[in-house]
Design a protein around this nucleic acid. Structure first.
Length: 486
RNA sequence: GGCGCAUUCGUCUAGGGGUUUAGGACACCUCCCUCUCAAGGAGGAGAUCACCGGUUCGAAUCCGGUAUGCGCUACCA
């Protein structure tokens, strides 16, 4: 590796980045950081029609959220800017003109209607769709005439009719394509904007990109790019195509598959370190067992060679598991910080209580090892923050219990609790555990009734800890309410 | 239709001629721990390595074909 590594993430602002896009960015970033190279962010805003407002911000937010920082880009600048393709139009124009001048490209005046018709006809006759090269050999006279009609032409590449184009992909190995299967693709659209093919070739060269790491869907277009590099007399970069992330139906992941925007995952309560680790593991592996890896470990161990070539389905269940692992790794302080935005959104559950920071800090440790997402924390802790518990009275009566026994147990507990001086975990246990045999009950039976009375649920954090955090007053009030429900 | 590529437990993957009775992880099941739920621990089930042929003493691993799937085939990226 004598060449200095310069890689790029080149999204088009036509929507919010999904996990697949971000994983591509990550692979690029990982290579840059692993090898001490540069990672550049370039916005490919050449499709005016599909441009989406706010997409650039979403792209940057997504990258920042995951800690994927860029050395050069629209906002930070760099020696190879500008980093918006819409600001580099002159470059593409002169490249196109150069190609026309040397006979490798030509103006095409065919209307979109004609092209659509042509394609429909080809499909109908089961022929390979593609431009029929009608304008490839237009005479000067015909051109002048079209020009006079006011038709804005596109510029098409004069693809060689014969021969083959081959290249060695870092991941896929040798890829060979017959030039005859490629049509004369568009370089410059009639609005003066370049197509992806032209723009990415011009820019990757201008920005001295060493490795083009992108998704598998680009493999088929790579020969076109190679042809362009050749015609322009440029040295092509290394090509690295990785497999795609698939939806549950094994098709290319798309909006159809539901929440796939990376920011949606943030909103659903996944930690950035989880997403980073998890995404890295889709289509890349270190060995036969290492799965939990920090950002630094990923950087240290990353290598292009270990990227796989089979598409992978995004396994949500495993993501949940991994997020649980990362949540448990958090310190109490980190967990508190992480959870803030999520519980604050749920204010009506008990505004005053949620704003009582000490109380929240006492509650959180009780659910930290039980939550798999930050959003789940809201659900898991709700009963700590409400005034009135709502639950079916039947829940109070547990296995092998009846109404009378339950009422008796709750009353007895009440009596024990009232005089309790330090209302903490230990004293609660000291007084409640012996109570069960006194009542002729199993501890489980007593505790179950108390749990429902105090939390409104049959599954909750450990009883004594929970009660201690709730406090004496609230506990007694809730037991009273339970008695009333019976 | 053409071109390109892929195919190992349900899912993510390891393994690239003998070390493999194909390893790990998620999910699932059982048991332990235990006041419930988690977490944790110990087990279990789950893959004729897509199929068919070939090469070889020996193939998940190499070769060919078939099937299936996916991608590309836009004045989208």
């Amino acid at each position: 590796m004598t060449q200095k590594v310069r890689v790029r993430f080149a999204p088009s602002p036509t929507g919010y980045p999904h996990v697949g896009n971000i994983r591509t960015a990550m692979f690029n970033w990982l290579l840059a950081r692993h090898s001490g190279g540069k990672f550049v962010l370039r916005i490919e805003d050449t499709d005016v029609a599909r441009k989406v407002e706010g997409a650039v911000k979403a792209i940057m937010d997504s990258l920042r959220w995951l800690g994927i920082d860029w050395d050069e880009g629209p906002d930070v600048g760099g020696d190879y800017g500008p980093y918006y393709q819409s600001e580099r139009l002159e470059l593409y124009k002169s490249a196109a003109e150069k190609l026309i001048a040397q006979g490798d490209a030509y103006y095409c005046y065919c209307s979109p209607e004609r092209l659509a018709e042509l394609r429909a006809e080809q499909v109908r006759r089961k022929q390979p769709p593609g431009y029929d090269r009608l304008c490839r050999n237009l005479s000067q006279e015909e051109r002048v005439k079209k020009e006079a009609e006011g038709i804005k032409p596109v510029v098409r590449f004069k693809t060689p009719l014969e021969g083959q184009t081959a290249y060695k992909d870092v991941i896929w190995g040798q890829v060979v394509v017959e030039n005859s299967t490629l049509d004369d693709f568009v370089l410059l659209k009639s609005d003066g904007f370049p197509t992806y093919h032209l723009a990415n070739v011009v820019d990757d060269h201008a920005m001295k990109i060493s490795h083009v790491i992108r998704a598998e869907e680009w493999i088929s277009s790579t020969p076109r790019h190679l042809l362009l590099y050749k015609a322009l007399g440029l040295e092509p970069p290394q090509f690295v195509h990785h497999a795609m992330i698939l939806g549950p139906d094994r098709a290319k992941l798309s909006k159809r598959h539901g929440a796939v925007s990376i920011l949606d995952y943030r909103d659903m309560g996944y930690l950035p370190q989880t997403m980073f680790n998890f995404l890295a593991l889709i289509g890349w592996s270190l060995d036969d067992k290492t799965e939990l890896m920090s950002r630094q470990e990923l950087i240290d161990n990353f290598s292009l060679e270990r990227i796989g070539k089979t598409g992978a389905i995004f396994n949500r269940e495993k993501l949940d598991w991994m997020n649980g692992v990362y949540i448990r790794k958090l310190t109490a302080e980190e967990f508190f910080e992480a959870v803030q935005p999520y519980i604050m959104e749920d204010l009506d559950a008990g505004k005053a209580l949620i704003e009582d920071e000490e109380y929240v800090r006492a509650v959180l440790p009780l659910v930290q090892e039980r939550a798999r997402t930050l959003l789940e924390v809201v659900e898991l802790t709700r009963f700590f923050f409400v005034d009135q518990l709502e639950y079916a009275p039947g829940l109070l009566i547990g296995k092998n219990m009846d109404k009378a026994a339950t009422a008796k147990a709750l009353k007895a507990a009440q009596d024990k609790l009232k005089p309790l001086k330090p209302f903490d975990t230990d004293s609660l246990e000291a007084v409640l555990r012996p109570l069960a045999p006194e009542l002729g009950l199993k501890t489980g039976q007593l505790f179950a009734a108390l749990r429902v009375a105090v939390t409104g649920r049959t599954a909750a954090p450990p009883l004594f800890d929970t009660m201690a955090v709730l406090g004496k007053e609230r506990c007694l009030k809730r037991i009273e309410a339970a008695l009333a429900k019976l």
